[in-house]
Simulated assay, not measured.
Amino acid sequence: MPRQKDILTTGEVAKICNVAPRTVSKWFDSGQLQGYRIPGSKDRRIPLSSLIKFMKAHNIPLDGLQSGQTRVLIVDDDSEIVEVLEKVLAEQANYEVHTAHSGFAAGIACEKARPHVMLLNMHLSDLKGEEILKFVKSNPDLQLTKVVAMSGKLTDGQAQHLLQNGFDGYLKKPFHVRQVVEAIEDAVSLVY
């Protein structure tokens, strides 16, 4: 695990707290979050100790401090796909990866992991992808979670329909790992 930094950027603080960078800037500018500006620049820096104090005072879960990595939740009932994606995304892309094998387990995993991106199989045995999307989008704690649909049965028209109905991206199975990483990065860039 990489050594934790003592000084953080607003983008890093945003990832840790699972908020938008402009929210961190507002906290800083209002004096709620202590830090300093880089001389000759408008860039802000927040000492880790100030962030921890702020998070405790505002009951923000400290589990985001464990890593500034992008948190990815893979939801698929195909164990083989989950194992391969988990291994590759953790080792090669250095994401913090969590997994769930059902819609029910996905709900529990979302509450615990607060993922930045969810890779969601649209054809789970217990819940439809749309139901899980509705749960994520209606939960105030998961407002920044991006949901990428995965399916082997998607036509181009269906894929566009998913985007129009709230999904942040899609992957057609079978896919290459590079496509998965690009879909995650594209979804995360919608926020950060």
Rank of each mutant, 00 (worst) to 15 (best):
I60P: 01
E96F: 08
K112E: 06
H98M: 11
L65W: 00
E83R: 12
L171A: 05
F135I: 13
A57G: 01
E131D: 15
S138D: 15
I81H: 09
K137Y: 10
G107V: 01
H98D: 11
R3W: 07
D6V: 04
S138Q: 13
L51Y: 11
V180Q: 09
D63T: 10
I108C: 00
Y95T: 01
G169Y: 14
K146Y: 09
M122V: 03
W27T: 02
A149L: 10
Q143G: 01
P61K: 07
R71I: 10
V88C: 06
P21M: 05
H116K: 10
I132M: 13
K172P: 11
A109W: 00
V191P: 03
A109Y: 06
A159G: 11
E12R: 05
S30V: 11
D126R: 10
S125I: 02
M122R: 06
N139L: 02
I108G: 01
D126S: 11
D126H: 09
G31N: 06
M118T: 14
Y192L: 13
W27V: 04
S102F: 07
Y95F: 15
L124G: 10
K137W: 10
E182K: 14
P21I: 02
K146Q: 15
L127H: 14
C110H: 05
L120T: 05
L127D: 08
K53N: 12
F54N: 04
K153N: 15
V75G: 08
V72T: 08
L89Y: 04
I7Y: 04
A149W: 14
V88G: 02
L85Y: 09
L8N: 05
T23W: 05
A14S: 04
I184Q: 07
L73Q: 11
S67L: 02
F28H: 01
I46H: 02
G129M: 13
A100W: 10
Q32H: 05
D77A: 07
Q158W: 03
S79I: 12
K26G: 03
G129E: 14
G103P: 07
L51V: 11
P115L: 13
I184V: 15
E12I: 01
E96V: 04
L48G: 05
S30H: 05
L89I: 06
H101D: 13
F135L: 12
E86G: 12
L62V: 02
E86M: 04
V75D: 12
H116E: 13
E111R: 11
G68Q: 15
Q32L: 14
V97M: 00
D126V: 11
F167L: 09
N59D: 13
S49L: 04
A113D: 05
N18F: 07
Y192C: 06
K15C: 01
N165K: 11
T10H: 08
S30D: 15
R3T: 12
T70F: 02
Q32K: 14
L33A: 09
K173G: 02
N121M: 10
F54A: 02
G11V: 03
G68P: 06
G129Q: 14
I46C: 08
G64R: 04
A159C: 09
M118A: 12
D29W: 11
M118E: 12
V97A: 01
E80N: 14
S41T: 15
F135S: 07
T99L: 00
D78G: 01
E91N: 12
V191K: 09
L33Y: 06
D76P: 07
P47I: 03
C17W: 00
L163T: 12
V88W: 03
G157A: 14
R22Q: 13
L133P: 10
E130F: 10
P47W: 08
E131T: 11
